[in-house]
Computed example of a mutant assay.
Amino acid sequence: MKTTSLDLRQRIVATYDEGKWTQEEVAKRFRVSLGMVKKLVLQRRRTGRIEARHRFSGRKAKLLPERGQEMKGLVAKEPDITLAEIKARLGLACTIPAIHQVLVKLGLTYKKRRSMQPNKTGPMSRKSDVGGNEAKAGSTRRGWSSSTSRPPRQT
């Protein structure tokens, strides 16, 4: 749904302020809903402005920033704590993904990291002393020779 332009908002409020028309009549005149007119009048009364307030729309966060700091302290004490344990210990009334999102915003990740460098691994197979076709001959199936491209005939 498109946002109503600021110009139209100003004309709606100015027309209503003249006092000659009711909110219903203003809505019909400008072809907007009655709720839109009511919203603009109430918003102006509360805030003094009639601009769109997109940044205030949507669902409000259940976890406030103070709770995030509590979570950060808990994770610092116990780095291997699970999200469910964080929820239980702090008595949070939110979902586990909400806890995850707060921790990510705080720069904390749940990725396990090794505490020491991994050991170097050796080569996975032995090197053979032979090179070229001789080395490949040991890897062919029995009955095949390196000079033929098909298996021997069965009689």
Results as ranks from 00 to 15, higher is better:
Pro97Asn: 01
His100Leu: 10
Ser139Gly: 12
Met116Phe: 15
Thr82His: 00
Glu51Asp: 07
Val41Asn: 01
Arg67Phe: 13
Gly143Pro: 02
Ala76Thr: 13
Glu66Gly: 09
Glu70Lys: 10
Thr95Ser: 12
Gly122Asn: 08
Leu74Val: 04
Lys112Phe: 07
Lys62Gly: 08
Tyr110Ile: 06
Lys136Met: 12
Thr109Asn: 07
Gly73Lys: 08
Gly48Tyr: 00
Phe56Thr: 14
Lys60Asp: 00
Ala137Met: 12
Arg49His: 11
Gly131Cys: 13
Asp129Cys: 09
Ala135Val: 07
Lys62Arg: 13
Thr82Arg: 03
Glu78Asp: 12
Arg53Met: 09
Ala76Asp: 13
Met116Arg: 15
Arg89Lys: 07
Glu66Trp: 12
Gln117Val: 13
Cys94Gln: 02
Arg141Asn: 13
Ile96Val: 12
Arg45Ile: 01
Val75Glu: 02
Met71His: 03
Glu78Arg: 15
Ala135Trp: 06
Arg49Asp: 07
Arg55Cys: 10
Thr47Leu: 05
Pro79Asn: 00
Thr109Gly: 06
Ile81Gly: 01
Gln117Ala: 12
Glu85Tyr: 04
Pro79Glu: 00
Pro65Ser: 01
Gln117Pro: 14
Leu108Glu: 05
Ala135Cys: 06
Val102Glu: 05
Gly143Lys: 01
Ala52Gln: 04
Met124Ala: 15
Lys111Leu: 09
Lys39Gly: 08
Pro65Ile: 02
Leu64Met: 12
Arg53Ala: 11
Arg142Pro: 11
Arg126Leu: 11
Lys111Gly: 09
Thr109Ser: 11
Gln69Asp: 08
Gln69Phe: 08
Leu42Tyr: 09
Arg114Asp: 11
Leu92Phe: 04
Pro65Asn: 01
Lys39Val: 04
Arg55Glu: 14
Lys72Glu: 07
Lys127Leu: 09
Asp80Ser: 14
His100Lys: 12
Arg59Thr: 09
Val75Trp: 04
Val41Glu: 00
Asp129Gly: 14
Glu70Met: 11
Leu108Gly: 00
Val75Ala: 03
Val102Lys: 05
Ala84Tyr: 04
Met124Asn: 15
Val41Gln: 00
His54Arg: 14
Ala52His: 06
Gln43Gly: 04
Ile96Gly: 05
Gly58Phe: 00
Leu42Ala: 06
Ala84Gln: 09
Lys136Glu: 11
Asp80Glu: 11
Gly68Ala: 05
Ser57Trp: 10
Lys111Met: 07
Lys60Glu: 01
Arg49Tyr: 10
Thr140Gly: 15
Gly131Thr: 15
Gln69Asn: 10
Arg59Ile: 06
Gly131Arg: 15
Cys94Phe: 02
Leu64Asn: 14
Pro79Ala: 02
His54Asn: 14
Ala98Thr: 12
Pro65His: 03
Glu51Val: 11
Gly138Leu: 06
Ser125Thr: 15
Arg44Asp: 00
Pro123Trp: 06
Arg53Gln: 14
Thr95Met: 04
Gly58Leu: 00
Met71Ser: 03
Leu92Pro: 02
Ala88His: 08
Pro118Met: 04
Thr82Leu: 03
Arg126Gln: 12
Glu134Ser: 13
Asp129Glu: 14
Leu63Ile: 12
Val102Asp: 03
Lys60Pro: 07
Thr140Val: 15
Tyr110Ala: 09
Glu70Leu: 11
Asp80Gly: 10
Leu90Phe: 01
Arg113Asn: 05
